[in-house]
Design a protein around this nucleic acid. Structure first.
Lengths: 181, 181, 181, 181
DNA sequence: AAGTAAACGAGACGGTACGTCGTGTCTTCCG
DNA sequence: CGGAAGACACGACGTACCGTCTCGTTTACTT
């Protein structure tokens, strides 16, 4: 019952009601509640899968691959209208709803992060990034910058910014803490 | 009427109602509405000012100053319980409420960013950062990474991470696009 | 807000919903609930007062007066469409709702009974009924017979039946138990 | 499937749901609906037969026989907890459901009335009641008085009241209208 | 004895009304 | 006359049953 999506985009998350979704889908309200405990869960399920992919194709060029990730997985993700409409609301609901936070993290964020990480690990193995690069932190920086700009400035990163961001990171990425001598 | 704050922390943003605030403050609901058009505006006003300061004191050591900014303005900001409780909800409301977004940006984000920017500009003038450093982007990366981690992992950055983040940036910050010939 | 009555007659008690009443009256559902705890209370208040009167006018002729009571207070009451539509439902609700039973008895039944009793007492004082007539029982018999026929046979008593009923009672009414020696 | 009765007495008519009945009886809801169109029909069938009998035994003493009828068929009927719990609700439903009214009348009321009528006819044939006694009206008066008191006063008639009621009737019962010259 | 049809339990379904709650506006007093 | 108190219209919430409807799975009858 993903005609949730229709209402999501035409009314926005906050103005979308479960009653409307049920009506739109020609379905009893109880049926919706039988499958999802609340609006957040419903939306999360509806949106999952419609998300832009993380490109992991190997091109031989680490910078190119990383740019690709930054562009499609991050700019494409945080910049997409659906995500802009729903993510902040979902995030806000996580404050009261730890289960939702868990699902958001495990079903949306982590898988994307894992695929992105693969690309950076490949860059390390090619020697294009130092072996002690703090991949997690790199990705959080990138994603965070995107998220920040999209949230507060309704803006997203263009190719030029992404290049400069990636290049700066390649030159000197944050390192993992030294563990041994 | 900042006993809003009391309810904010003991009930959370979503469960706090304007009725409760009015009752708590021994005030008519209409009186609250006379001053603020909605809950978001009320909370924004209540919280503003209670926020951790951006330290701009000059110590002579750019790295030290930048770390200080990162620690207090960013980790201290996104990690504080009040901000965690209210920011995501406020952000979610901005989707429907452009005025709120404007105020959030202009009254909270921009001023903090401006003060942080001053610190980075000082670093540039000392020669500790290249003159074409994209300060905005640096700050967005830092803030974004903090925000990201706090939102999805309920976690905040410890000193070690901040050091590594700052050091990486100092070694090779993102640059402004070349504007000249 | 007695536009309850309108819906009562056009939909019947069971099919009338509080939501409809509220909508019809251009009023919030909560406003209805603020004034009446449930449908029964609402209907009881709406109907009270619209009921046929108990005629107590003194004509000098006891039989005539008693017939008048029987006809208007009983046949007119149990035979009226409004009462037929609502009384059984109200009575059914009393099973779960003792407060409703109390109100139904004290606000509808007892006052009518009291006024009818006055007429019979006058007949006693005229010597047209024995002094130890069990007035309560007489009235219950009369009312009960009406109610019975209206409930199970959708029928009401015509003048002829009422005459014979009254005449039989005048000839030999049920007596009060002897109390003294 | 008369474990309906169990739920009837422990929850009351209104709070008893067909789902509960089905669950209690370890039976599918559809199975219940296959046999009865609605709750009223189910309850009517469940209760029928459990009703107190109308005693028609011939004792030779008309007054005694009539008292017996009044006591067991009327006081025993309207005073029994099962009947008190279900009859008003059933009656209320008849307003919307003429078929139910028909069954209630033909399967419950009429048979009892017929058996009671036999007793009164025997009294007439013995000369203890006038030949033109309006038996129907007598029974309706009696039943109605019982019903009335049970419904509005949660009370039932004791032996003394029944005696006085019967005696009054014997002295001067309501007559049938004269039909011929 | 196997094959088939009916009846069955279980429970999901589309609906409808419930009674509660919060919103933002509007009215009523009181000090 | 300003403000507290709170009534008000509105509408979503999540719950409970309704009566209908598929599902497999017994039964019990036919062949």
């Amino acid at each position: 019952m993903e005609s949730t999506l229709k209402l999501l985009e035409e009314r926005g998350y906050a103005s979308m009601t479960i009653e409307q979704v049920a009506a739109e889908a020609q379905v009893g309200k109880a049926t919706v509640y039988r499958s999802w405990p609340n609006k957040a869960a419903l939306v999360l399920d509806a949106v999952r899968g419609r998300l832009p992919d993380v490109p992991t194709a190997e091109t031989g060029n680490s910078r190119e691959e990383m740019l690709s990730v930054a562009k499609q997985a991050l700019a494409g993700f945080f910049g997409s209208p659906e995500v802009q409409a729903m993510l902040p609301a979902l995030v806000a609901d996580t404050v009261r709803n730890p289960e939702l936070r868990r699902r958001l993290r495990e079903e949306i964020i982590e898988p994307r992060k894992a695929r992105s990480r693969a690309v950076l690990e490949r860059a390390i193995s090619r020697g294009d990034l130092p072996p002690d690069t703090d991949i997690s932190l790199v990705l959080e920086m990138w994603a965070g910058a995107m998220m920040f700009r999209s949230v507060y400035f309704e803006d997203s990163f263009d190719d030029s910014v992404l290049s400069r961001l990636v290049d700066a990171t390649i030159s000197s990425p944050p390192r993992l803490p030294r563990t041994g001598p």
